[in-house]
Write a protein that binds this DNA or RNA. Structure first.
Lengths: 290, 290
DNA sequence: GACATGTCTTTCATGGATGAAAAACATAGT
DNA sequence: ACTATGTTTTTCATCCATGAAAGACATGTC
């Protein structure tokens, strides 16, 4: 049999990642019809079902999952080639993935990470889920657990403390009004905390963690926030002690294969220094406001 | 810019490996015209010259070489997927690469390596050059030097001795008539030896090492052969002592990523046992003929 | 229960990638 | 010097992969 086109592999990956033909068709620029046909090709070539089809989308079978994991390796290399290409044109890209609040801190201190004199572009992507650095989806990431993968190198950047916050001088009026993100978006421990401990008194639900800060400042209630966010905001005050159960460490992680790249090294170093310089704030030691 | 088609990557690899459009077009089934166009695409996308074009073929530039090495990783994964596919259909393939003489020995003892009851196919490829197991071009290989790559696992299979051979009872008449392979094909030490030590008295040149055995048996002169080949042939006798300078070790090597595959394990084990059981012959200890 | 929405799938006409053949061009051999 | 061979490159007609649009089908909403 004539062997599979590598291009179909790429399309397969996109369908698997997007969970359907429509999503894949958008990111790939092909029509859903074509995407469907290519996936069919791959399935026939592999001689086994790879997707569970439904009107609502495609879901990987266990065999599809096995193929997906293999092909991610190809994608990783393709991304490596892409950055090699950019390198040759003097214009590189560093992809930095972090959670909502570290991203927020990076934005606030953007000039400490990337200046107009730097010869690289910065792609900031926000995600609460674990960054898959192994497959080079991103170059630099923040993790709350120490990576075990041998292909990653990590540097410990201190601890992160959490507490409940409310608008200053709002008194005890808000004690029973908790703010939280919707349960399906509550992927981190601090986001699940209100659901687990104060489910009865949740007054407002928002879809993005970032909105928590906004509605707390508006005086709508109290919400769990990282101390470095709450303590830095002059309009907020703690509505209780630090919640010790939520405390965790954090690491700056990079892919060891890209260790040599100056741009990635620079971003990683600067991010690390930024986090270290805020170590007391992260740890919840309530320094005086700037 | 829209990114490169993975299919073009594969075509690039084939052109680089075959050294031209014609070769690549044959193995890929595409026309030379198309192959040329796809390569042009890749070059434009990468923004740098990848090949030195001439009427005699394509040669990689240093930048092309850099790309080639990256993309070989993709190819390795694609091969992994291919064997996963075969596995799912109960029909796997084990690719065994060895030099001329070990291959010959394997053929003579084929049933010791692979029987009709085995559920896998065997691809035997002869090559004097080092097998690139790292990129999974082959699954099992024979090496004359111990591999240093951490991704490979190797087992020492004894030593190999060499000597000059001639037809039995041909006396000293052939002493001045050496047989050798053409100089450009003399990639191994034992093949270079006649050129380095007896260049003036080379009487016959052949293009394949395998032909050396045939013309020695025909009584055309004397040639350097591995002892396990010469000593096993009842029509030949040694035309001198063992040539100690040529003695070397040999290892059976497999890719550690495929360690788990039963079929590869089986072939590797059997090959190892076959070599060990002939260890005395390999080492030139002249046992009685079978 | 009807309806709106978002999927996947099928149909069919089109255009861009493709191959055959010729041309252009080196290299090697006589 | 000339021919034979094996390249790459160009030209042009063809055909196959592709996209638009319609169809089929679930799911959730009012």
């Amino acid at each position: 049999m004539k062997d599979m086109s590598w291009e179909s592999y790429r399309i397969f990956l996109e369908v698997a990642r997007q969970g359907g033909l429509t999503g894949a068709s958008q990111v790939s620029g092909l029509s859903p019809a074509t995407v469907g046909r290519r996936v069919l090709q791959v399935e026939e070539a592999m001689g086994r079902p790879l997707f569970l089809r439904s009107q609502t989308g495609y879901r990987l079978t266990s065999e599809g999952q096995a193929l997906f994991e293999q092909l991610q390796g190809m994608e990783a290399i393709a991304r490596g080639v892409e950055s090699w290409r950019q390198e040759g044109q003097g214009t590189s890209t560093v992809r930095l993935m972090a959670g909502t609040w570290v991203t927020w801190l990076v934005c606030e201190n953007f000039s400490a990470i990337c200046t107009e004199r730097d010869p690289f572009r910065l792609d900031l992507s926000i995600s609460e889920r674990r960054a898959t650095l192994t497959h080079r989806e991103v170059d630099v990431g923040i993790r709350a657990v120490e990576p075990t993968e041998p292909s990653l190198i990590s540097r410990h950047a201190g601890e992160v403390a959490y507490a409940a916050y409310r608008r200053k001088n709002s008194g005890e009026a808000l004690a029973g009004r908790w703010l939280a993100v919707s349960q399906e978006d509550a992927v981190s421990a601090y986001l699940r905390w209100p659901h687990e401990r104060e489910a009865d008194t949740i007054a407002v639900i928002v879809s993005r963690p970032r909105s928590l800060l906004d509605i707390v400042r508006a005086g709508a209630g109290q919400a769990v926030l990282p101390c470095f966010v709450g303590d830095l905001d002059p309009a907020l005050e703690r509505a209780g002690e630090e919640i010790r159960a939520l405390r965790h460490h954090q690491w700056v992680v990079t892919n060891s294969e890209d260790r040599h790249r100056r741009d990635i090294r620079a971003v990683s170093d600067r991010l690390f220094r930024l986090l270290r310089s805020h170590a007391d704030l992260f740890a919840g030691k309530r320094p005086s406001r700037t």
